[in-house]
C-alpha cells in the first residue's frame, strides 16, 4: 500500500497539487492530523475523499480550500501557492478560485438568495448590477429562478443547498469543494444535488467532495481513502487499483 497517491511527481497542469503536506495541531500534546500527504487533482477531475471522522479528511479539505495553512509541505491551487500566501491573499484566492459547498449550507441568514449568491463577487469588487445579473443567471440554472428574493429561512433544505451551489459557482472558480453536500437533505433531494454535481463535472469543472457515504463517493471518478492522517488507497472507479 502506497503512502502517496496519484502522481508522485506533481502534474504542473493539475488544478490542485498537494505536496508532502503535514498538519500538526498543538492541543496539549502535538496531534498530527495529516502526515506527509501528497495528492494531485487534474483539471476537470471529480474526486471524492472518504474516511472516518478524525481521519484528517476535513483538514485536507481546509488546506486545499485555503482556510488553513500546512505545518510543512506545499498546496497549490490553479497555480497559486496557497500555503505561502498571506491571509488577505488566501482570502482573495478563496473568493475567486474556490467555490465552497457545505453540509449545513452556510448561507447568510438575512440576505436573499440573490444576495447570497452575489456575496463572493462583492469581495471581488464586482458592481452591484453585474453581481445581481450573474446571481440571477446562476439561480435560474439551478432551478430557483422564482425564489430570487427569498431569505434562506423561506427555502427548503434542498433549495438552500442549490443556492449554496450557485454561490460556489458565482466567481467561476477553478475548484468546487463540497463537504458532505447531501448530509443535511433527504435521499431524494440528495440525488438531485448529486445530479447537479454530475452536470458541473460534465461542464468541465474540477470537483472535490468529502463524504463518509459510499454512494455519494461513487458519483466521482475516483475515491481517495484517508485514515489516520495518511492516504490509504486511491480507488479509480470502474478500474480499481490498490496502491
Amino acid at each position: 500500500m502506497s503512502e502517496t497517491a496519484g502522481t508522485s511527481t506533481p502534474d504542473p497542469d493539475a488544478t490542485v497539487v498537494v505536496e508532502s503536506v503535514t498538519k500538526q495541531y498543538a492541543a496539549g500534546t502535538t496531534v498530527t492530523a495529516l502526515d506527509d500527504v501528497s495528492l494531485s487533482l487534474p483539471r476537470g477531475s471529480y474526486t471524492a475523499i472518504m474516511g472516518p471522522s478524525g481521519s484528517g479528511k476535513s483538514t485536507l479539505l481546509n488546506l486545499v480550500g485555503g482556510l488553513d495553512t500546512p505545518s510543512a509541505g506545499r498546496v497549490t491551487v490553479d497555480g497559486h501557492e496557497v500555503s505561502a500566501e498571506s491571509e488577505a491573499e488566501r482570502a482573495a484566492i478563496r473568493g475567486t478560485e474556490i467555490g465552497f459547498v457545505f453540509q449545513t449550507f452556510n448561507l447568510m441568514p438575512r440576505l436573499t438568495a440573490v444576495e447570497n449568491v452575489a456575496l463572493p463577487l462583492v469581495f471581488d469588487g464586482w458592481s452591484r448590477a453585474e453581481r445581481r445579473q450573474r446571481a440571477r443567471e446562476l439561480l435560474d440554472d439551478v432551478g430557483l429562478g422564482d425564489r430570487l428574493d427569498h431569505v434562506p429561512s423561506e427555502l427548503s433544505g434542498g433549495q438552500r443547498q442549490r443556492v449554496a451551489i450557485a454561490r460556489a459557482l458565482a466567481p467561476d472558480p477553478a475548484l468546487i469543494l463540497a463537504d458532505e453536500p447531501t448530509g443535511n437533505v433527504d435521499t431524494e433531494t440528495g440525488a438531485t444535488i448529486l445530479d447537479i454535481f454530475d452536470d458541473l463535472h460534465a461542464a468541465g469543472n474540477t470537483i472535490l467532495v468529502v463524504t463518509h457515504e459510499r454512494h455519494v463517493a461513487e458519483c466521482a471518478e475516483r475515491i481517495v481513502h484517508v485514515e489516520d492522517g495518511h492516504i490509504r488507497k486511491v480507488e479509480e472507479l470502474g478500474e480499481e487499483t490498490d496502491g
Partner: peptide, 16 residues
C-alpha cells in the same frame, strides 16, 4: 461567528 466564517470562506479579507 458563523456569518463571519461564511464571509471569509467566500473571499472576505479580515479588513472586509
Amino acid at each position: 461567528t458563523r456569518e463571519i466564517g461564511i464571509m471569509k470562506a467566500v473571499g472576505a479579507r479580515n479588513r472586509d
